[in-house]
Design a protein around this nucleic acid. Sequence first.
DNA 1: CGTTAGGTTGACTTGATTCAACAACAGTGG
DNA 2: CCACTGTTGTTGAATCAAGTCAACCTAACG
Lengths: 253, 253
Amino acid sequence: MASVSQIFERTVRKFETRAPLDPADRQALYDLPFEIRSIDPNRYIVREGDRPPGATLIVEGLAFRQKVTIDGGRQILSVHIPGDFVDLEGSLLRVADHNVQALTRCEVAIVPRDAIVALIDSHAKIAHAMWVDTLIDASIYREWIVNVGRRDSRSGMCHLLCEFARRLEAAGLGNSAGYELPMTQEQLADALGITPVHVNRILRDLDREGLIVRDKRFVRVPSWEALRKCGGFSELYLHLDQRVVNTPMAATA
Amino acid sequence: MASVSQIFERTVRKFETRAPLDPADRQALYDLPFEIRSIDPNRYIVREGDRPPGATLIVEGLAFRQKVTIDGGRQILSVHIPGDFVDLEGSLLRVADHNVQALTRCEVAIVPRDAIVALIDSHAKIAHAMWVDTLIDASIYREWIVNVGRRDSRSGMCHLLCEFARRLEAAGLGNSAGYELPMTQEQLADALGITPVHVNRILRDLDREGLIVRDKRFVRVPSWEALRKCGGFSELYLHLDQRVVNTPMAATA
DNA sequence: CGTTAGGTTGACTTGATTCAACAACAGTGG
DNA sequence: CCACTGTTGTTGAATCAAGTCAACCTAACG
């Protein structure tokens, strides 16, 4: 049972930073039924148009959201880490409006939709935490619109590298001074809305100028301040400090 | 009192398409305290870094979300219509991570944060409807990432025109065969992540080729199918049909 | 009737794409 | 163990979509 509850440990920890949970809430999360599945890199977890039978929680590995245009261009929309539900929408909206793919090999837990729906119906604080979570996701989407719309590819790349650094660090999966970048240059291109060739040149330039130091996919950041400045990065939009302070829910916790 | 309830009428109607409400829920919405304010075009409704004292509901007019980069570039993130709360985040997250500006002259109703928080705490179905609403907003953000990231400016423009057409129509504010485009070319540029000059050229070309017919800011769409195709537009992401069917909340309604 | 915001167009520049070739490397199977 | 194959990364040269700069036009408005 100890190993089983570890499945939801990261999720519980994350939710606690969104809205205070009480022991019954935590237990309800730990008691969720699930089925573990292992997913190869690049395999689809959710497909546009699907009505998935359950919500998928990343237990290990990374995944990303993605959409493909009519003429075949792929745009990566977000990257997700262990503890994230990648298709809560699937349990609340009619159909998936985008695709989700495994970035690395993933261990996922699939929780039946009914269990999710029952959970949010009976545990207001969990629903609240999940809602705050979707608000933060939306905030990150907004920043990505800015990143692809109004930053040149060099700044965009720096911004993306800063975001990864801070998120991995906040999740206890890495260090902002250096980390293993999990994406291929083609995937970076699809996240920034540019071509893989151009990604290559930008990374080379950033390396030459000392903003980053690369060793394969490992990225070391000699000067966080320099990288931050180049990307115009401000972590406000990640809402990492989000501890709800003045809702009645917090008051009753 | 009749005129007062009209303030929330559009919101109630929208929420009903997100999650079934019962009479008590509707009444709770109609009973919300508020203060009416009139806002000039381009005036700020919310500023990044603010902790707004209440949630702002658009009663009349249009508004848009926006972020400004370090070097002064403005990116428009979404456009909002009457019935939309433009800063629910303000009542749930610590600080606003972006700006909201009036697009046209706006009549807004400001609802104190405490009232919003009390409402979502005591009316699970309303909270659910609001949550679904934020999920749909997030879906629209995702599509905008694709629009600025992976569509050329011509397709992007067509896509944006299609989105406006369908949303205005769905809200009973216009007709997809022709409508008054509320934005200046500069604002369109900031929505698409391009320059105003280029917007001008694209609109001229679209007009010349007969995809649209312009008269000042009124846009007539001779062939919806042609415009839809040029923009690669599929309205799935707007979730206009969103009537929740299989949550317990729906079952008990 | 001057002032201002929005729209329009041309000429030139630039950031990014395209195409193409090749290098590095991991995995696979004879 | 090495040849074969596919994926990822790298670089150069030519091209193109969009940006920049600048001029000018129009309509609204105090």
